[in-house]
């Protein structure tokens, strides 16, 4: 049985750890609230854009714009959104594994894949895997998401696609379901899949200004940026949610451990007292 002193020391160290995990949980909860607000307030824009886009695509034949066109099955690009920091449960591992699976499965039959990774953890996970090419890594951008970041990535993706370096672009990220649940999602960014519009919906002809082609040429790349922006926001919210629940269970485990150790400590103390009493009594007995 470990000594009283060493048990006491362990209780102290577990208490310290619990304090840290509790603090991290609080911080994540506060950040989660903000990230969640951002996700919710970004939704109207994304939805509106989808509406405009689908009503546009409805009136256009495919092939009118390169971003709408299905090309061959050359290389594809996977944009993977992860976090820069760990201690958030399976958050990074889940999404990284999903990306690896997606590439290995290669359901669409592409020649090969390149990876663009946002977040340090995804890079750490995937950098030494055989057969995976990391074409670009962005780090430390998930701390504060703004639209300019999304635009930067979006422009890069669109440029690579237009230069025909890739024939398809996918976005893999943790979609935010609720504070305690995330869902790994694979979205096709390019070519843009026209939304299906239900039968019987009326179709009005638009007046385009300046012209149909110009309007499309501006809106389609925008859509890619907005998708990435939404993905980033969802990913960040998911990260905080995942960290919050991971830290919550860590705190619970620490409390449980402290309970067990305290019990052990008290037992050891009791044993020591009993032993001392026995010694005193037997000593007194012997001098009678």
């Amino acid at each position: 049985m470990p000594s009283l002193k060493s048990i006491k020391k362990r209780i102290g160290s577990v208490k310290n750890t619990r304090q840290i995990t509790k603090a991290m949980k609080m911080v994540s909860a506060a950040k989660l609230r903000r990230a969640q607000d951002a996700v919710v307030s970004a939704r109207p824009y994304a939805r509106k854009l989808q509406e405009v886009l689908s009503s546009l695509a409805l009136r256009e034949e495919a092939g009118v714009h390169p971003l709408l066109m299905e090309r061959g099955k050359g290389r594809a690009l996977v944009v993977l959104l992860t976090a820069d920091r760990g201690l958030c449960g399976g958050f990074n591992a889940n999404v990284s594994k999903a990306a690896e699976r997606f590439i290995r499965a290669n359901d669409q039959g592409y020649e090969g894949y390149d990876l663009m990774i946002i977040g340090r953890k995804g890079r750490d996970y995937l950098k030494n895997r055989p057969g995976l090419t990391l074409s670009k890594v962005y780090e430390n951008i998930t701390g504060s998401i703004n639209y300019a970041t999304a635009r930067l990535i979006g422009e890069e993706v669109v440029a690579a696609y237009e230069a025909e370096r890739y024939d398809a672009v996918y976005l893999i990220f943790n979609a935010f379901r609720s504070a305690i649940s995330q869902e790994v999602t694979v979205d096709q960014l390019l070519p843009i899949v026209p939304m299906q519009v239900e039968e019987g919906e009326h179709v009005a002809t638009y007046l385009y200004e300046p012209g149909r082609g110009e309007v499309l040429a501006q809106i389609l790349p925008k859509n890619v940026e907005v998708q990435i922006f939404r993905g980033l926001l969802e990913s960040v919210a998911s990260e905080h949610g995942a960290r919050m629940s991971a830290m919550d269970s860590a705190s619970k485990n620490a409390s449980e451990m402290i309970g067990k150790l305290t019990l052990q400590y008290n037992r050891a103390r009791q044993a020591a007292i009993t032993k001392e009493l026995m010694e005193i009594i037997s000593g007194a007995e012997s001098i009678k």
Binding site: V52, L56, A204, T205, Y206, L207, Y208, E209, P210, E214, V215, Q218
Partner: peptide
């Protein structure tokens, strides 16, 4: 402020999409 010039919209406007 449209790209090709300022424009006004009143109720009953024809469907329009502009930058």
């Amino acid at each position: 402020p449209g790209t090709v010039g300022e424009f006004g919209v009143l109720p009953g406007h024809t469907p329009l999409l502009t930058t």
